[in-house]
Nucleic acid binder design. Structure first.
Lengths: 239, 239
DNA sequence: TCCACAGGTCAACGGTGTTGTCATAAGGTG
DNA sequence: CACCTTATGACAACACCGTTGACCTGTGGA
């Protein structure tokens, strides 16, 4: 068996499985996404996916070389979906905020895929489109090129990094997540003021905010800083 | 078997394994860290760790409830190592910048462990120390509590998130990393100006910066925004 | 010296990704 | 229609994985 994966173009014999399902890469990716959404990230295994599809697990290896390959296909589908719903308005600040939140939400909707694909450069159409759009927003807003590239880089990496970080959180088994919440409540909520004054003074706030993502706040900070830079640029040119 | 883990204080009978090794939580954590760095994150399994230690895998359950518990201990050890070299000076901006860069560097020094532990709350000594220190820096600088907590959260998560993201990059096999660089050079460096004007205009800059981490830039943006907020607070109180 | 028991070991369970081999039905051809 | 090729699904097996219950043994305190 050199390679059991047949290129899509060569596929023709649509032979149904024992349970009457006709497999296809699209159907497999869709089912994987559905499985993740409905039963949590750890519900995705080749065997479970096979069961959900009504096919033998090993059949999937006719379509994807291995699990990683499948996850990348899922991730690619996600990029497409995120970008497809973004409608830039011309207000650079609002547009970037909107896109950032969309990217983050997209990642959280499919944690496993986000974690696997956050650090990979695909060089595919959707990714290129995204780069062009974001750079366009920044340059039209008046950022000089070096600044635009720097902010673009920080913006994208921040969205991806937080997406992956928060995804990892939601991808945890239920028991582990509850354990974390309990740690915040019982450990950080009860430290005495004489040994840990700063934690004690802010404990309730800490416990309350720790369970939510800090991405919106971090995004806002990034955008604030960007606007500050832009103000300086404009002041410099005498506007 | 209600609970086979004995609290450290009660431990006394240092009985060697068949192969003559005397186990301890510290030895196990160190070996785990070494295993992760040398053979990749996937190399860390209870069974492999047992083998590396010269002990039966099930012995480890006398020291850690389950694998997750062990990972948290590894994560806390990493935090401790980072914090131990940090010397705050009293200048909040410089101190946070220094700590952020240290955390990022620490993550890159142990990429695989960083990726595994970035998203976990350990609730252990070193982590608690870190929280207390950072909150202290912010509150002494004059940030009101809600602001301090928000910035603390964003600061820490950003450092962890970028640490994990950049770690993932360096943890890639050499071939994959070169393939990514090639994608940037050949794909993004050659897009025509009429279809992708913004990428074409900034191509050389894009290709040049893409291979380095954007964390320093993102950190700087976050700190800039924090200072802006602080200025507003001070102006508000009439200083 | 004795003995309680901490702590190491063994075997087993149900899960995982992956692959070598086989069976068969679909589709093209005459 | 019958025939042949072969894409593709199914099966069984392999080597792992985390975890646990039962067992055994040597250590340290009294």
């Amino acid at each position: 068996m050199t390679d059991r994966v047949v290129p899509p173009a060569a596929r023709q014999r649509r032979r149904p499985t024992k349970q009457g399902v006709v497999l296809s890469p699209e159907l497999i990716v869709e089912t994987a996404l559905r499985l993740i959404e409905e039963h949590g990230a750890d519900a995705l295994s080749v065997r479970r996916l096979g069961r959900a599809l009504g096919a033998d697990p090993s059949s999937l290896y006719r379509y994807f070389r291995h699990t990683d390959d499948l996850m990348l296909a899922v991730a690619d589908e996600l990029i497409g979906r995120t970008l497809r719903t973004w409608r830039p308005t011309g207000d650079w600040l609002a547009d970037l905020r909107d896109l950032g939140l969309r990217m983050h939400a997209g990642a959280l909707a499919h944690p496993r895929a986000a974690m696997l694909s956050a650090h990979r450069v695909t060089g595919r159409v959707h990714e290129i489109q995204a780069v062009e759009s974001i750079l366009g927003v920044l340059r039209r807003a008046g950022f000089p090129d070096p600044e635009a590239v720097r902010i673009y880089h920080a913006f994208v990496d921040q969205a991806l990094a937080f997406g992956a970080l928060d995804s990892a959180g939601t991808a945890l088994p239920r028991a582990a997540r509850e354990a974390e919440a309990e740690v915040w409540r019982s450990t950080y909520g009860r430290l005495p003021a004489d040994t840990h004054p700063h934690i004690a003074a802010t404990a309730s706030r800490l416990v309350a905010t720790m369970r939510s993502s800090s991405y919106p706040a971090a995004l806002e900070l990034l955008l604030t800083a960007a606007r500050t830079h832009l103000d300086h640029v404009r002041a410099g040119t005498g506007e």
